[in-house]
Write a protein that binds this DNA or RNA. Structure first.
Length: 512
RNA sequence: GGCGGCGUAGCUCAGCGGUAGAGCAGGGGAAUCAUAAUCCCUUGGUCGGCGGUUCAAAUCCGUCCGCCGCUACCA
């Protein structure tokens, strides 16, 4: 089975922050999980590089738009590398393949009669080069209206191409009805439905007030409005309009992962564009929440914007990946703080998971000559623990399929806690005297359980769990769910145990 | 204003018709293999207020209070 998962393409008018990192990590976990589960996976990320804001940001930076986007796009690529994101492709909307595909999509919609020449009108602030809604405006005592920025606005009317969104209201509703899982989380789905039921207006899909965009076919005065351009990336990266290529098998996407602020574009406009183009729509769109920092909204003016590179440098990549997905039910908003991260790391990674491995591995090293012990007859307690571990791949699959990443981690932790209880109750250090074969068996049960734990956690913490599997003597080509059915060879030589998650040393003088 | 959601132990949350649960934090004990890490037991809640339906309500309905989201062209 194919599985196609995407991040949004990141808008290059600013540098990467924790929000971008969050989307990328979550999508990466899902992509890695599906690969581990034997699926044929395509994982796409990229950058969204057109539009007035980019044009302006480039001008402010004293660069031409292409040079500017080259630079910022590279920052996002670097972020993905830093975060160990396993995307198969990275698309930029300024690439020829994208421009060609987006142009083809436009032509298709135009030919179908769903794009027509009309006009867009609204309150426009020349100083801000931006349109404003009536609700945003303030009327001064002398009757002039001003934007929130203080800039005076005027009513302008601009010729524009419009997309016949209104014609798709019923088809969208029917699709939502027939596919209850089309949009997640459920609350967001209701918002989308309410929006559609409220009536859809046609959508302006071109602009003539700036130049930095893909030219509208046969009308060079216009460029495509950024959303039509941007959303098309999900198919242009598969080679659209060519539908006979090897990559096209991945369409429709299984999952568009997005931030909650851009959900409407993905859950309403994008399916309508696809319907108009005669293409199947994505199977699911899931919106995740936002992070506050120490309880405060992240903003440039407050100066609390978190740079992913700084986080990784300070805490280590897998600690960050784990924290972001563990701390909060996926889909909810969360709060990031040093204290919370360190607490999660210490109790769950160091004490629960890391220490469990260290406990039985050091016993194997000392009492079994560092060789993986043989299994013996099972007691009820053995079977119970093993069964709980063996159930993990299936239970995680179900949770990953509804993007319940936090619940998936919780499932694993239940087994980890059971593992710590098991080793305490079995007390292999006492069996060493009284019943050495039973001791060997207990240690083997723990090794087998830990192997499953480390395997199912690979998508979340790839580098750390690879090291844990090294410690368990699992060959590099035996790290998949399918491989779990093949037991490790008895007497496999294990390397000397080494802590995977050494505790973070708190800087007691952090203020200086 | 309209539509929707939430309010459960100190904290973060699960439960969504059958007389309250998890993790963390707090208290007591055990063990000593281990990153002084673990395990066992335990304190703690009139499940936002008030009414109603029901043999039975965090769980359904109404209402009030308090938060939050969406309400179109702004990634």
């Amino acid at each position: 089975m194919t599985y196609y998962v995407t991040t949004p393409i990141f808008y290059v008018n600013g540098s990467p922050h924790i929000g971008h990192a969050y989307t990328a990590i979550a999508a990466d976990v899902i992509a890695r999980f599906k690969r581990l589960d034997g699926e044929d996976v395509r994982f796409l990320s990229g950058t969204d590089e057109h539009g007035q804001k980019v044009e302006k940001a480039a001008r402010d930076a004293g660069l031409d738009p292409q040079a500017f986007t080259d630079r910022v796009s590279a920052e996002f690529r670097t972020m993905l590398t830093t975060l160990n994101i396993s995307n198969d492709d990275f698309i930029r909307t300024t690439e020829p393949r994208h421009k060609a595909g987006a142009t083809a999509l436009w032509e298709k919609l135009f030919a179908a009669g769903d794009i027509y020449l009309g006009h867009y009108e609204g309150f426009y602030a020349v100083r801000d080069e931006d349109f404003y809604g009536e609700d945003d405006l303030t009327t001064l005592p002398d009757g002039t209206r001003i934007a929130p920025t203080g800039a005076p606005v005027e009513w302008v009317r601009e010729p524009n191409y419009l997309f016949r969104l209104s014609a798709y209201q019923d088809r969208l509703l029917a699709h939502y009805e027939a596919n209850p899982d089309f949009v997640g989380p459920a609350g967001k789905r209701n918002e989308m439905l309410a929006f559609i039921r409220g009536g859809l207006n046609d959508l302006s899909v071109s602009r003539s007030s700036f130049r930095w965009g893909i030219p509208v076919p046969n009308d060079p005065d216009h460029v495509m409005y950024v959303w039509l351009d941007a959303l098309a990336n999900y198919i242009t990266a598969l080679g659209y309009p060519a539908e006979d290529t090897a990559l096209w098998r991945f369409w429709p996407a299984n999952l568009h992962l997005v931030g909650k602020d851009i959900q409407r574009f993905h859950a309403i406009y994008w399916p309508a564009f696809l319907m108009a183009a005669g293409l199947p729509v994505p199977r699911r769109i899931f919106a995740h929440g936002w992070w506050t920092i120490d309880g405060a909204k992240m903003s440039k003016s407050v100066g609390n914007v978190v740079d992913p590179h700084d986080l990784v440098a300070k805490y280590g990549l897998d600690a960050v990946r784990f924290f972001l997905l563990r701390e909060v039910p996926f889909g909810n908003d969360g709060d990031f703080s040093h204290r919370a991260l360190v607490s999660r790391f210490t109790t769950e990674l160091a004490n629960d998971l890391g220490n469990l491995a260290q406990r039985f591995l050091s016993l194997i090293a000392k009492n079994c000559g560092g060789l993986l012990p043989e299994a013996g007859p099972r007691t009820e307690a053995d079977s119970e623990l093993l069964a709980a571990a063996e159930a993990l791949p299936a239970s995680l699959r179900e949770k990953i399929d509804r993007q319940a990443l936090g619940e998936a981690i919780e499932d694993v932790w239940r087994v980890i806690r059971a593992g710590n209880a098991y080793i305490d109750h079995q007390a292999p250090w006492a069996l060493r005297r009284t019943d050495p074969p039973r001791m060997a068996h207990v240690l083997r049960v723990l090794a087998d359980v830990q192997r499953i734990i480390a395997t199912v956690l690979l998508p979340f913490m790839p580098a750390s769990m690879d090291r844990m599997l090294d410690q368990l003597g699992v060959p590099a080509d035996q790290r998949s769910f399918a491989a779990l059915s093949v037991p490790l060879a008895d007497a496999t030589k294990l390397p000397p145990p080494q802590g995977i998650f050494p505790k973070m040393v708190e800087d007691t003088d952090a203020k200086s």
